[in-house]
């Protein structure tokens, strides 16, 4: 579109003012949750009000000193790290095989590997419960890690496919001509060039698993609950002001991931 040539200020006819106002209204709507939870998290103990009237860090202190909340947070970290490693191990080679390979049925394989993105999560959650129950693995970190692996691997594949398309295949051809094997080419040429895409994909996988609630809600038990599951039942049954502090911490995590992820993707 025509952007870039004329300064933004020049477009300030009535139509320009109108469309700018509408766009900013929508951007503010999008940012509303972040603008609400952060100030609220510094409000007083018994206040569930926005905007808050006092300044206090008591909610953060309460969060960090409540064993239950900390235990669920640690579980979430463990599971998210496991799911990220799994998704990278499976997703990076898969992306390479999809972008660079030619073999019968490639499109179907690619579609199959990406389909967990579009299948309703509730169906997968129910299926994972029935599946893990059949070998008594519900309520284990292992069960949750493989379940989250299903959800996060497609995103690593998509991110790395985009990254691979920016790498000149001639570099790989040159390596094979000079005698490198397929494996050597993949590990010594492709992977180093794919570093930023892998980093971005890994970050997204981590955040996705850390925030995932529906599957975790179905397959965890009280003792192995993740942070989002505890948040979900807390919002549903006994909404507590600590949620504002947790929400702010999660928003901060999302901000870090999306800034670093966007920067890494741009580099690749």
């Amino acid at each position: 579109m025509g952007g870039g040539e004329k300064p933004v200020g020049a477009a300030m006819n009535p139509w320009g003012i109108f469309s700018t106002t509408v766009a900013w209204f929508i951007l503010l709507f999008l940012m509303l949750p972040s603008f609400v939870v952060v100030p609220m998290s510094f409000g007083g103990k018994f206040e569930m009000m926005f905007p808050p009237t006092t300044f206090d860090t008591i909610l953060y202190e309460r969060f960090f000193s409540t064993g239950n909340w900390i235990a669920t947070t640690i579980t979430s970290f463990k599971v998210a790290i496991g799911a990220t490693v799994l998704a990278l191990l499976l997703g990076v080679p898969a992306a390479y095989g999809i972008v660079r390979g030619t073999y019968p049925g490639k499109k179907i394989v690619a579609l199959f590997l990406l389909s967990p993105i579009l299948v309703p999560v509730i169906v997968l959650a129910l299926g994972m419960y029935l599946y893990l129950a059949s070998f008594k693995a519900t309520g284990t970190d292992f069960g949750l890690i493989i379940a989250h692996g299903v959800l996060t691997t497609p995103f690593v594949i998509v991110t790395c496919m985009a990254g691979l398309r920016h790498i000149d295949p001639n570099l790989e051809t040159a390596a094979t001509i000079m005698g490198a094997s397929v494996m050597q080419t993949f590990f010594k040429v492709t992977l180093p060039l794919l570093k930023s895409a892998m980093f971005a994909g890994g970050l997204f996988a981590f955040l996705m698993s850390f925030d995932e609630v529906v599957v975790a809600f179905f397959i965890t038990e009280a003792s192995t609950m993740t942070l989002p599951v505890k948040m979900y039942s807390s919002i549903k049954w006994e909404i507590s002001p600590i949620l504002a502090a947790i929400s702010s911490l999660l928003t901060f995590l999302s901000l870090v991931v999306c800034l670093i992820g966007a920067a890494a993707q741009k580099k690749s």
Partner: peptide, 11 residues
């Protein structure tokens, strides 16, 4: 990238 729980809570 914000958790759907954070959004729901805020709303």
């Amino acid at each position: 990238w914000t958790s759907v729980l954070v959004k729901s809570f805020a709303f």
